[in-house]
Structure formats: C-alpha cells, structure tokens
C-alpha cells in the first residue's frame, strides 16, 4: 500500500471506530435516560409505579396550591379528566400559578403523590408548554387562542 492509501485506510478505520463507539454509547444512553411525558390521564391508564421517573404536565387545578409550614408546597395537576397531587420543595418558576400550564419532573411516591424534583417553565415567548397543550387537547379541554378553561 502506498502511504496515501494507508492514510485513507487509517482515517476510515478511525472514523468507523468513533462512529461505532458513539452509536453504542448513544443507544445505551437513550434506552436508559429518557424521561417519558405523561398527562394525569396517562398516569392513571398506565398504572405508573412508584419510583419511576417521568414528567407530568397539565394545568394547576384551581384552589389546589397549599403551603406547608416549611418551604414545601403542594398542588394538583389536572387535565380535566384525572388529577395527580404533586409535592415540591423549592422555588417555583415565575410563570407558575393556578389555572396555568405546568410541567414537573419527578416520580410518584408510595402514596400516589408525585414528588417533583423540578417544576419547569419554558423560556421562550410561548407561555404554554406544548406538551400541556397536547395533553389538554387529548382530554378535550383546549380552546384555540386561550389557556384552556
């Protein structure tokens, strides 16, 4: 083999190895590290077990936000059909309020309460998280141009 062919072969092998390694890592990581998004109806329908991490989204039910004695806060996420109680210890995003969309990540505890590790707000000019819009559409509570009812 002349040096050029040798170099090309080395390049191709390097690229192939890197590609295969990357793909293996990626597939392994994807299978292990994705968070599913569920609406309260999904949570009921799929019987999500305690301790399984996922993201939940829907509207914060009216008059459901309750403060404990400490920094913890609890509220109820609803999609109009089903409700899931949520507990969170932390500073809520500025966009959080009753009747508005919310996305939280965490897991259910043994009592069917969702222990949120993070409550999210999207930082773009759209006010409603799109997954929430979709969840509301599926439960028939979405009105075009408004934030649900």
């Amino acid at each position: 083999m002349n040096p050029r062919k040798k170099r090309r072969l080395a390049f191709a092998i390097a690229l192939l190895l890197a590609g295969a390694g990357g793909a293996a890592l990626t597939i392994y990581a994807l299978s292990d590290n994705v968070l599913y998004f569920y609406s309260p109806s999904d949570v009921m329908a799929k019987h999500v077990g305690p301790g399984v991490s996922f993201r939940i989204g829907g509207l914060v039910a009216d008059h459901s936000v309750k403060h404990g004695t400490g920094t913890a806060i609890s509220f109820v996420v609803t999609d109009g059909k089903h409700e899931v109680p949520v507990r969170f210890d932390g500073v809520l995003p500025a966009l959080f309020r009753e009747g508005q969309g919310v996305v939280a990540s965490g897991a259910l505890n043994g009592n069917g309460v969702f222990d949120a590790t993070q409550v999210l707000a999207k930082h773009d000019e759209k006010y409603m998280p799109p997954e929430v819009v979709d969840a509301l559409k599926r439960s028939g509570r979405w009105q075009e141009g408004g934030a649900g009812t």
Partner: peptide, 28 residues
C-alpha cells in the same frame, strides 16, 4: 443531534412524548 432530534422523531412516529435530559448527555 441524536439526543435533540430523537424525541421529535419518536413523537412524530408514535406520539410518545419523551424528553432527553442531562443523564443522556452525561453518558454520551
């Protein structure tokens, strides 16, 4: 690229909504 687009493709094909977060990127 994969981590960003995989949720989109999955949603378009199956309607399943997932998010790929920091653990994926920490691993890859």
């Amino acid at each position: 690229f994969l981590g960003t687009l995989y949720p989109l493709v999955l949603d378009a094909l199956t309607g399943t909504k997932i998010s790929v977060g920091p653990p994926y990127f920490a691993a890859t």
